[in-house]
Amino acid sequence: MPITSLLIRTKAERTAAIADEAALLQGVEIAEIRNDIIVAVTDTATRDEDKGLWDTLEQITGVLTVDAIYHNFEDVLDTEAPEMISQETEQ
């Protein structure tokens, strides 16, 4: 159930169009646009879907680079504190 934030650098004349196209993708939210950099957050069900989005975004015309900044991943939520391992190495 990954969540990733991305910085998408774009060619300046294409920034707005890229943002529009990216926003149409399922799982992508545009958080902010600063000059020619788009801050996007992906929220998907599986890692494959997440990576698929990154690839798709890269392919949009005018995208220069896509960098992941923060990636949250977890497979299973912990509900118990883990058992303590033994406290010293025995001889």
Binding site: I3, E29, E32, I69, N72
Partner: peptide, 16 residues
């Protein structure tokens, strides 16, 4: 999840 998304977003902004 909303919290984490906000966290992710702020990380990206910080990186700018």
């Amino acid at each position: 999840r909303t919290f984490i998304k906000r966290v992710a977003q702020m990380a990206a902004l910080a990186a700018l």
